[in-house]
Write a protein that binds this DNA or RNA. Sequence first.
RNA 1: GGGUCGUUAGCUCAGCGGUAGAGCAGGUGACUCUUAAUCACUUGGUCCAGGGUUCGAAUCCCUGACGGCCCA
Length: 497
Amino acid sequence: MAEEDLRRTRLEKAEQWRVHNQNPYPYRYERTHMAGDLQTKYQNLENGQQVEDAVSVAGRIVARRVLGSVAFFGLQDDSGTIQLYFDKKRIRESMGADAFKWLDKLTDTGDFIGAHGTIRRTERGELSVYVHEYELLCKSILPLPSEYYGLADVQKRYRQRYLDLIANPGVRETFRKRALVVREIRRFLDERGFLEIETPVLQTEAGGAAARPFTTHHNALGLDMFLRIATELHLKRLVVGGFEKVYELGRIFRNEGISTRHNPEFTTVEIYEAYSDYFDIMNLVETLLRAVAQKVLGATALVCEGNTIDLGAPFRRITMFDLVAEMTGVALAGLRDAEKAARLAEEVGVEVPAGASVGQILYQLFEEKCETQLTQPTFVLDYPVEISPLAKAHRSVPDMVERFELYINGRETADGFSELNDPVDQRARLETQASAKAAGDLEAHPFDEDFVTAIEHGLPPTGGVGIGIDRLVMLLTDSPSIRDVIAFPTLRPEAVE
RNA sequence: GGGUCGUUAGCUCAGCGGUAGAGCAGGUGACUCUUAAUCACUUGGUCCAGGGUUCGAAUCCCUGACGGCCCA
C-alpha cells in the first residue's frame, strides 16, 4: 500500500479515537514500572504463574498479535521489552464493551500505549502484563520497519536514526556505551583533580593541529572566523594562567574527506598536566583506557574486528626509529644523509618526495609500513620535529621531539607530548609552519601571535594528550565505521526535487 | 578525488529485452496462550532522475544524484 494510504488509514484511526472520546495524543501517563526491571524482578516466575502485583507500563507497540478474544502486544520502553496480554472478557469488564475492539481495530505497531494490570508469565513462557486497563498515548501515522528484518538500508539508518534505534537492537547499546565512555573519562579526570574548562569553538585562527578548518562569518563584527580543529592552544593558555590540570571533552571540526574513520565533526578529550612529561602522560592514558574499558565492558580484554585486544597488559612502548627498523629493516637512527635515507626507503617500496628530510622519510615509512599492523596497544615514541611544531625538543635525540601516538587495532587513538614551552623555539617552529602555509600547504599551522605571547609569559613543564573519543568507542563496541558511533553522521543532503 | 557495487511496494528482497512479483506490514473476515501466530480474500508501484538504443527498456548504453566498499 502506498505510504499516503497508510498514513490516511492511521489518521482515520486517530479520528475514531476522538469519536470515542479518547484523545489520541494525551499529556501524561503515570508509569510505575520499566519493562527491563520487571523482566529482572520476575525472572523466576514459572510458566502459567501469575501474581497480583499491580503495575503500569508505557512504551511503543513493536509487535501485535490479535487472536480473536485475546491479544498479545510487544511493548518496548527505554529499558527493554515486555508483553501485554489482553483478554477480551477482562478488558470488557474493566473498560466497557468496545474497548477490546478498539484495541484490535485502532492500534498499530509504532503507537505508544500505557497499560495497567498484573504480572503473569504465559503458558509459553513470555512475561506479560495481564492488562486491566490500557490507554493510547500516541497514535503514530507512519509504519515501522519490518519487525523481523529490521532496517537494513544504510542510508535510511543514518538519515532516520530513530528508525534504526527502534528496529535494530544493538544500536541503542552502542550509544549507551558511548555515553558511559564519556561519563567515565570525566569521572576519572575529575577524581584526579583535573578541571574541565570550555574553550572557544569560534576562532579567528584555527590552530593546534595539521588540518583544514571550516570557515564561517560573524556578521556584527564583519569578521571571517573558523571552527576549531583542536582545543590545544587554549588549554595551554589555561596552564599558563595557573590551572595545572585541565581538560576539555568536546567537538572539533576538520574540513576533510569522509570515510569509515573520518567524520567532519568528531569528539576529542585533550588533557594537560603541569610538571609532567610525555612519560607521565602515557601512564595516565594507559590507566584511563583500562578504567574506561573496565567500566564499559566489565573487562580489559576485548574483541574488535576479530582481533583480541588486551588493554590490561602494559602497553608496548617503542621509538619510531626502532619500530621502523623492526618492521621494515630500514635503520635510520643517527642517519643525517637524507638522500641515503630516501634510497633505503625506496628499497622497501616506499616512494618519497624529492627533498624530504630524514624525519619525513622516517614518518612516511612508519605510516605506510607499520601503522596498520599495530594491533595491540602500542605507544610509538619520538617524532620528527618537522611534523610536530607544538612538541618539545627531545632531551637526547637531535631533530626529534618528545611525542607519542597510541595505536590500537591499527588505528591512531591518542597523540601526546611533552609540551613545547621554550618560547623562542615555539616562535621559530610556528614561523616555519606559517611559511609553509604561505607557500600553499593548506594543512600547515597558522601563526598565532596571541598563543606565542602566552608561552612567552611562561608555560611550566607540561605534558598533554588528545584522545579520539569516536575511535575509542569504535574499539569498545567493535564498530567498523565511525558512522556507527555518531548518532547523526555527516551525509550529503538528499536531492530535492 | 579514483575504482567498484548498489538504488524495484511502507519494510526485506526477487525479476536482468516481451503485460512489474513474493514475504511481511496495511484492509476485510475467522480464531481465548501468541512469539516472524495461523487460515481465507484483498489494496498497494515516477522500478533513483534525465537522455539514448530498440517494434518493445526495471532490464542494454550515456550523464547525473545519493549511498556502501576498496584505494588516495
